[in-house]
Each structure stands twice: as C-alpha cells, then as structure tokens.
Design a binder for these strands. Sequence first.
RNA 1: CGGGGCGUGGCGCAGUUGGUAGCGCGCUGCGUUUGGGACGCAGAGGUCGCCGGUUCGAGUCCGGCCGCCCCGACCA
Length: 524
Amino acid sequence: MRLSQHFGRTLREAPADVPIAGAAWLMRAGMIRASTPGVWSYLPLGEMAINRLETLLSEELESFAAEEVDLHEEASLDGLVDREVESYKDLPRTLFQTRREGISDNNGLIALREQRVHQSLSLQMGNDHCRDAVQQLHHLHLAFFAQCGLPVLIVNAETGATTFALPHPQGHEQIAHCPECGILSMLNTAAFDRGQPASEPARPLEKVATPDCKTIADLCAFLGVEAQQTLKAVFVTLDAGEATEQTALVMLRGDLDVSDEKVKAITGAGTMQPATEAEIRERIGATPGYASPIGIREDALVIVDESIHGMANFVTGANEADVHYRNANYPRDFAAGMVVDIALAYPGAGCLRCDGVLMVEPAAILGRTTMKTLKATYLDASGTEQPVIVGSTQIALDQVVCAIADLHHDEHGIVWPEPVAPYPVHIVCIAKSNEAVRAADGLYEELRGAGFLVLYDDRNLSPGVMFADADLIGIPLRITISPRSLENGGYEIKWRQQDERTILPVADAFSVIGVWLARGLPPG
RNA sequence: CGGGGCGUGGCGCAGUUGGUAGCGCGCUGCGUUUGGGACGCAGAGGUCGCCGGUUCGAGUCCGGCCGCCCCGACCA
C-alpha cells in the first residue's frame, strides 16, 4: 500500500483517557479509533493487523481439517448439529468462525462493548475424545499466542472450562498459581486447603453480650479470639429480579471470603448481589450484624462452607442485637442445606494438591475454552444414540491486538512481532530524486509481484515525519531508499527492534529481502 | 451504590474578580526546506456536554440532567 493513498493518519499525541498503553499506541499509529469508549473502529492498518491474527488462527486449524462456518447464534449450534450429524461416520468434525459478540463484563485488557471473537468448535464422540481434541486446540493456540509474543497461560476455570490468561498488572481477573505443582486456576474457582485447626471436645453453647460488635474484626477485638474461631454470615440475593429470585445465608470461617463464582455454580444462579436488610429479615429471619443459622426460619436456604468441618467451639451470631454465641458446634447446634466449597482462595493459602502455597496475580482474559454435551445425538457403531460433545475455544481478537501493542512497544511506537505484523516490510523513500523514486517504486512492485504485502511511504514529506510514522506503525523491516543510500551503495536496512542500519547492495536487494520475508527470519 | 475529578476547534490543553474565547500540534495556500515529527508568511476551523435559572451581560455563578475517568464499597 502506498501511504500517499492510504486512509487514516498517525497522531502526535494519544487521546486522553485511554486506559491502556496498548490501545493508545494503536490509536497513535492510526490503526484504531474509539468513537465512544468501548467501541473501536478499525482503520485499514488495524484491520490488516487483526486480519493477520485471523489468518494465523485459521492456518493453524488446517491440521484438524477444520472448515469455516458462519453460525449466527450460539443457540443454533445444537439444532444445526442435530440436523447435519446422524452417524458416527459424521464425526469428529472441526469448525471455526469469527463473529461479533456483544459483551457486558470486562475481564480483558480493555473494556469493549463488542468484540471480534475467533471460535473453534470440535464436534466429538465422547468426553475423552473431546478432552483430547481440546488439548490439541490448546497446543495450537498456545503456539499462536507465542507468535504474538504473549506469555499466555491456560488456567482452570469453572468445571469444564479454562481461560487463556495473560498475566498483566492491569488485568481485571485474578489467577491463583502454585509454584510447587504448577496448578493454575482462576482465583474465583480455585480450590485450596483450609488449614484446619485441631478439633477439641464440644463445650456447652453459651450466649455472650457483645455490644456494637457488628463485624468480625470488632468481635475478635472484643472477645479476644482469632477470626478463624468465628463463623461468619454473608447474605446474598440470587437472580434478583428473576422468577427464581431467592436469598441465601452463606456461612464460612471468619477469616475467609465468599467466592461469587462458586456460589453461583453451586446454586445455578445467574447473578448474585448482597442482600438488603429487609430481605435478610423476611426471607431468612436473621438479625443483620448478629446473624447465624441458629434460630432462623426453618425454610431458609443455608449454604455452609467446607471450612465448618475443622471448626469446634466457635463464635457466631445469636440473631439478637448485641449478642453472640460461644462454643457453637456443627451439626449439634444448627442444620445446613449443604456443606460445600464456596470460599475464595487467597495469596498464601495452601495448595490442595501438594505442600505448596498459592500465589495470586492479576491477569487479562484473552479467551476461553468450554466443553459441553449437546442435545444433538448420533448413532454409534452399535446403533445406540449418543450425545455429541462439543469442545469450543474462543479468542478475543481485539484483546489480543491490544495486548500485543501493550507488551511490544518502545518510546517511539509499536514493535510488531514478526509473525503477526500487519505488513512484513515498510519501504521509505526520502529526499526524492528521480533515481531514488525509480528504485523505490521498482522494489515495491517487485516485492508485491512476488506476493508480499508491502507498505510504501511515497509521500513527499520530510524524513523525520516518515521515520516517526514508521516507528509508530512498527513494521518489522524498514527499507530506506534515498540519494544518500544509493551513494552508499544500495538500500538502507533497519529492523524495527534494533538500532543498527546496514546497506544492502541494489543488485542483491530483491532476492535477499525475498528470502527474509518468505522464511520470516529474525533480524541479524 | 458512595466519594473525588473532568467535559472548551480534529488531538492535547489554558481561560484570573462574570464583559462576547485563546495557545501548541494538526489542517489549507504560497515560498524556502529534505536522513529523525523543518522554517517563514497568509488563512480556515468552536451553538464552550445538554436543559433551565440569576444577570444589562455567563465558558465563568446557581439548579438539574447526560457522558467519561479515578478511588472506595456489601463480607455482619
């Protein structure tokens, strides 16, 4: 592409209020524009960049004999598979597509209202095969992220799901990691060792006056006990506003916190929010600030964390103002609908698999993998109906573009990793002379004729502007052609990530550059 | 949900005690320049987020609304 005919401009300064450096560099380079926050338009250069990512992903899938589709709605997959797949001879199959998807939560690097998502779908017979297929997709996608220069991790999420997580200080999610055994989980769903204290003989339940002790901290200070010796009550309202709305009392050891994701997974709720005081009193029959499962409505939904198993003679609310119980014991003193894992892991918590200690770090989610059983069925070799299992991976392309620019830039602009650069080579013709223009035009046409994408700065601008733009855009290989370079014997070569410049003799230029571009050689 | 900040040409910003809006960059034209965002001269471009109020007069003061940014927040 000749820059003299190119749509879009570079910016000397980034717009204010860009929350992530990567997005600011993309804007300065003239690749994206944000009309309103969360809505990106791709200018031609940015479109080239995101298309490059799509192409790489599609090429990777060739080893699966994957075919591209365009499924307009998530829900249509089941019906489509039901119709098209009848026999085990129709399986396995691999499909992929890129689609636009509206999003409400922000767990990537930057909040967007709509994203371009590349999705791979693996239709399989049985969970084992599906797991294998998903493993292979993981390998392919990790190779893709490596080409993007992104140290992405595969992280366990809720049952049957994993995420592609990029550790990043501005990430909106947390991942828990055990350096000993290497297990990686989303903090929200991470299992952990509750470090149970030794049990002791149960003592009689007793009431104790605790004026103005509405929090665990107050209570511990007043009674002189550790948080681990208390049982904390948390009230949540599930599916607020839906027909299934209900309020639950969640109990856990005083030093622990509730994991929203775990509660939602166990109850099947879609949303969860703190309960109001009225909901607590009416639906649970408890006294906020002094709550426990002792003396509440019998039909109240009570969910107790597994940490209860290691507790004896603990302190908990008495459901009357300014009064708590001492020496409470489970199940002697109250019943629970379920005793499950609903506590949030934390840095320093014990690993459940080994003797290690969990570390927690922020990360941005660039994609996820899910496995599920479809309603659609096929007939296996014995003529029995079996459900089709689908493994699906999704990669948020906009987030990937943003992450690349965020991790790969210097003070002058983006430095695209060679495999994902929107163009592999950028020719700059400066101090125009007839000879220089003829040489630059010639090389441009030659390389294009050989099938390479070439960005060609043929504008009549001062050298500083063209070099500054080249640095902003960040194409890996820059070739400068000018009267001076020709005097020096050829074309000046400079790789974006290096400072050195070398002269390539005119006679060798086309073949040498051709080899570099065809093999994707690293600089040097 | 609470607290704080912001909203002024395309971008970044200034605007004092209320007096009819300015700077840098970018843009247009002409000329001089041509190896790291060049220089001179001459220009274009703004219902100051929206609505209402106070006033002879509001970017500025008051009230309401909208949008954005940052921080905080339910754990009994």
